[in-house]
Amino acid sequence: MSDEKKAPDLSRRKFIKNSGYVAGGAIGGGILTSLIGTSVWNGDQKTAPETTTNNADSYNRALMYFRRRKDFEILSAATERIFPEDENGPGAIALGAPYFIDHQLAGGFGNNEKEYTRGPFSEGTDYQGYQSPLKRHEIFSAGIQAMERESQENYGTSFVDLEGEQQDKILQKFQDNKVKMKHVSSAYFFDQLRTATLSGVYADPLYGGNANMDGWRMKEFPGSQMSYIQQIESEEFIDIEPSPLKDHL
């Protein structure tokens, strides 16, 4: 891997964090898409190679659940605060976690497949778990709207235009269950958003996140290895190039 991965340019990061979404929001998805691809990690997204071995440029970097670009941008900004880019390496956006979440919301995850969804519904105690009639995709959509509403009410501007610390304050309110949402607690929404973000960061790249297995590289997790029987007794830490599930086909 290139050294740039370990030590990204700080001024560039700041640019992406604080003005990337403005550009994306104002100008259009094409620019946003290039900004939030892993191509930023190549040092200059304008000259990112057309063909790469990672999934950054793949055709599935498109939306199958969200209808409005703006909603996806808000989601993206929130995931980046949950798992920000730092000296360890890329954040949720560069890893493709927002696309992962979009795709999951369109399928079984978003539609509470294999979950008990029959009524009657009542709120229950703090120990009885999730009891809302809402589907997960409805909660994400409502949560994103609530984040935007909080931003407009408190700062008079869109969530995507806020400074990172301001976005954090709003997310913290959600986690602390201090935002009113219909038929669901904001803490539950936040917990789902957090788990989905981490899943997008660390799930096998086949799901559209964890671009170039960089989530795994940061954690020094070798992915899907067939066997460690020759290494398990080693006193030394062994650096292993990660392997994705696609290598099993």
Partner: peptide, 9 residues
């Protein structure tokens, strides 16, 4: 004393 609710997940 409580009303049981389904384990939905």
């Amino acid at each position: 004393g409580e009303t049981a609710l389904p384990m939905r997940q």
